[in-house]
């Protein structure tokens, strides 16, 4: 068998690289497996204003690179590969990727979450040609046009505020009668005079044909359907944890998040869950980073108890 790492971390967002930093700095032989590039969901946002220490804000991509560099400074290695399956059945845990198999004494799962999908007709067909999940990436293609934003949480509202400065007209479609977003965003959004709110409404279907661009919106009050003309729709209805490969192994809640308390311990000894993938109240870059440190701490404690290291 190949080299056995002390700790393997799956996922290179803020939780993953914070765990890698603490583990490597704690003398652990540490590998982080990331499928694409550091940063995770941070790279989908514009500037991050609420990560302490950056008084002018910092863009998510740069922060991700800095976090990776910080962990690598103490010897943590990054393997770019996609995890296909995991085997947590014995003391030494195995991870199969599209670039070989890796094993370790302890595992920290920090795979994060992906943007949630509506699951309506037209959503897949028009992906990238009218249907978008990253306002900061694609908003500029809708300068002086009409767009819809779906959702009422923090990310939907910040997306809407950002887009309203570019577009001619913006519809905010939300299934409730009021925003779920933190109060600090409300005024900024209500002050945008080109925003029209479609409360108590859900998206029924999307059509983005060249000569027929509209979405069908359904009222949750009376089930009536109306057609809303728009050039593009930005979907921002929360996130879905990327936990498919752990189904049947790790205990998940009904939304797919890995059940673990503040110690980040999962139902399997030696496996920890950190960051957005864990059941928790507040999902932020700073709480993900915090989880990473905690997970590394308990992983190191586990290793010293069970492997006398």
């Amino acid at each position: 068998m190949d080299r056995t790492f002390d700790i393997i971390i799956i996922g290179g967002g803020p939780a993953g690289y914070s765990a890698a930093l603490y583990a490597a700095r704690g003398g652990m032989d540490t590998l982080l497996i990331e499928k694409m590039a550091p940063g995770g969901q941070m790279t989908l946002t514009g500037d991050i204003d609420n990560y302490p220490g950056y008084d002018d804000g910092i863009d998510g991509f740069t922060l991700g690179m800095k976090m990776q560099a910080g962990a690598e400074r103490f010897g943590a290695a990054t393997e770019y590969a996609e995890v296909i399956s995991v085997d947590f059945g014995s003391e030494i845990k195995r991870i199969k990727t599209n670039n070989g198999e890796f094993c370790a004494r302890a595992i920290i799962v920090a795979v994060g979450a992906n943007p949630g999908e509506l699951g309506v007709r037209g959503e897949k067909e028009y992906l990238g040609s009218g249907v978008h999940y990253c306002a900061h990436c694609d908003g500029r293609f809708y300068k002086d046009k009409t767009v819809a934003v779906v959702g009422g949480g923090n990310s939907a509202v910040t997306d809407a505020i950002y887009l309203s400065k570019l577009v001619n007209k913006l519809y905010l479609i939300h299934r409730r009668a009021e925003l779920r977003a933190t109060k600090v965003y409300h005024n900024a959004l209500f002050n945008c005079d080109n925003v029209e709110f479609l409360w108590n409404s859900t998206v029924e279907s999307i059509s983005m044909e060249e000569d027929d661009k509209h979405i069908n919106v359904k009222s949750v009050l009376d089930n009536s359907i109306s057609s809303v003309p728009c050039d593009g729709v930005f979907i921002s209805i929360g996130r879905r944890p990327a936990t498919d490969i752990f189904k049947g192994l790790l205990e998940l809640d009904k939304n797919g998040y890995i059940i673990a308390d503040e110690t980040t311990r999962t139902n399997i000894e030696g496996v920890f869950a950190a960051g957005d993938v864990r059941t928790k109240e507040l999902r932020q870059v700073v709480t993900a980073a915090s989880d990473g440190a905690v997970a590394a701490h308990y992983a190191m404690e586990y290793i010293s108890q069970y492997f006398n290291k």
Binding site: M36, A37, G39, L44, D59, G60, F61, H136
Partner: peptide
Amino acid sequence: YADWCGPCRMVAPI
């Protein structure tokens, strides 16, 4: 791509 787009900067080195 564009220089200001996070996912573009992720994929650029690849």
